[in-house]
Design a binder for these strands. Sequence first.
DNA 1: GCGTCCAGGTCTACC
DNA 2: GGTAGACCTGGACGC
Length: 279
Amino acid sequence: MTKTIYLETPQNFSFRETVNSHGWSVLLPFELDKENLRLSYVFENESSAEISEEDGKLKIEIVGENENLLRDVRHILRFDEDLSKFYKILKSEKRLKWIAAQSAGRLLRSPTVFEDLVKTICTTNCSWSLTKIMVKNLVEKLGNGGRAFPTPEQMASVPEEFYRTQIRAGYRSGYFAELAEKVASGKLNPEAWLTSNLPTNELKKEMKKVKGFGDYAAENLLKLVGRYDGLALDSYLRSEFYKKHNAGTLCDDKQIRAFYEKFGAWQGLAIWCDMSGNF
DNA sequence: GCGTCCAGGTCTACC
DNA sequence: GGTAGACCTGGACGC
């Protein structure tokens, strides 16, 4: 079954900026047609959505049955994210005015926190090309039809060795096996992090209980659940900071933190937009 | 072709 | 609490 739906977008929403907000749009089961700005995603039951813009609305071309599909599309594109306070803070920063002007700042995310959790582990201590390989293997060798991202149950159904030999996850293999077992058995519910009442530092501690999840990974996932207190410093952000704000020379993380401290609860989003924008 | 280094870090042992 | 060393893999680079 194929059908097309048109969605009104919220105020200050940019499909282009959201799709290009970070690398998630090229990690399966997302696929991005950059030339035509069309983003597609294959859901757990192999239904899919191809999203583009038409006449100021979002055009959603749906293949298959999925009663939660539109809810998930809104979630992926962060329709509910209110960035007005963030934009207000940026008014005093001439260098960052482009963010509000272009309605940037919405970070693309997966339909589930579990998927973002696994993908974040795939970004640690490796090149981006290896991240793409690991995610591709997860989808093609464990997901439904070799097209969808695997469920916790599907990931829990294979031994650690599978991650080592088939997914090419190396030392992360044990992390995946343990995480999948905990989520599939109900010992851990990452989806609850979306609505957690815990202060951010407490929620970060919860996230760091996941093996393989350190400061960078936890702060990155916090951004994807809507909390931007942490910078999620990684080698990419550091190198960009050195180039843009420190004349190309290295400095310690304290200096980077001091630079963005003024953005308070929004500092993680401020550094990401600052470093990823071509301004 | 081969060795080395590093990339969108984290864990453990040790102090 | 801070730090050194180990850890998988793929790709770039130098020789």
